[in-house]
């Protein structure tokens, strides 16, 4: 039996790792994006008390390695009496960390936004949340699509760090298969192929948004 045959016989291990990575990625990408958008919304207009704490949080996250945050949640918090599973800690770390990055990307673009459009929406009687959801956010997404896409790929790659805090994702699958059968080369080639595939998928998705934006005259920022 060749090494590849051995791998094929345990394709279910790969598939479950792949599925777990996709689940981690999908769930935390959506939540992190919502969190980032919510932070930018909170930075809108007349909430000066929130500005400083949000700024500190966003900059703080951007100065930390992702793994140290995961360590903090999984290994550190139990000594403060907060205990959670590796999976939960992993998701929360991904959401908080990348939420801050998404917030920074959107905030940077918001700062260059033409005020006139906002005034036009105010003059038409839009409420703050409506205006943010319907006028501001769609444009921020169209303008920052390239940066958002890069961030999504970084998020995908950060899911692999969670193998270190024992989450059973894709890299964990390769690692356990290679130690069971001692065929690391083949196992990791398959897994890297999976990551590549998801990345290419993400790039296509961003291109689609790009076409949507180009039709409306939005340059890629």
């Amino acid at each position: 039996m060749s090494n590849w045959d051995i791998l094929w016989s345990s394709y279910d291990v790969f598939l479950s790792g792949f599925y777990n990575t996709l689940k981690l990625f999908g769930l935390s990408a959506v939540l992190a994006f919502l969190m980032g958008s919510a932070m930018v919304f909170l930075l809108e207009g007349s909430r000066p008390r929130l500005k400083v704490p949000l700024r500190i949080f966003i900059d703080g996250m951007r100065m930390l390695p992702f793994l140290i945050l995961a360590y903090l949640l999984y290994y550190g918090l139990p000594s403060a009496g907060i205990r959670m599973s590796a999976w939960t800690a992993g998701i929360i770390a991904l959401v908080i960390y990348h939420g801050a990055y998404f917030a920074e990307i959107l905030r940077g673009c918001r700062a260059t936004f033409a005020q006139g459009q906002v005034e036009a929406a105010i003059a038409q009687g839009f409420s703050q949340p409506q205006m943010f959801m319907r006028i501001i956010l769609p444009q921020l997404i169209l303008k920052t699509r390239g940066l958002l896409g890069n961030q999504l790929i970084i998020l995908l790659k950060d899911t692999a760090f969670l193998v270190i805090i024992t989450v059973r994702e894709l890299t964990a699958a390769a690692s356990s298969l290679s130690s069971t059968y001692f065929i690391p080369m083949e196992a990791f080639i398959v897994v890297i192929g999976f990551y590549w595939l998801i990345s290419i998928g993400l790039e296509l998705f961003i291109k689609m948004i790009g076409r949507f934006g180009a039709k409306r005259g939005f340059e890629n920022a």
């Binding site: 006139g116 459009q117 005034e119 036009a120 929406a121 444009q139 005259g217």
Partner: peptide, 8 residues
């Protein structure tokens, strides 16, 4: 003065 249409 600046129209302020919503470009998206």
């Amino acid at each position: 003065q600046g129209f302020n249409l919503w470009p998206h």
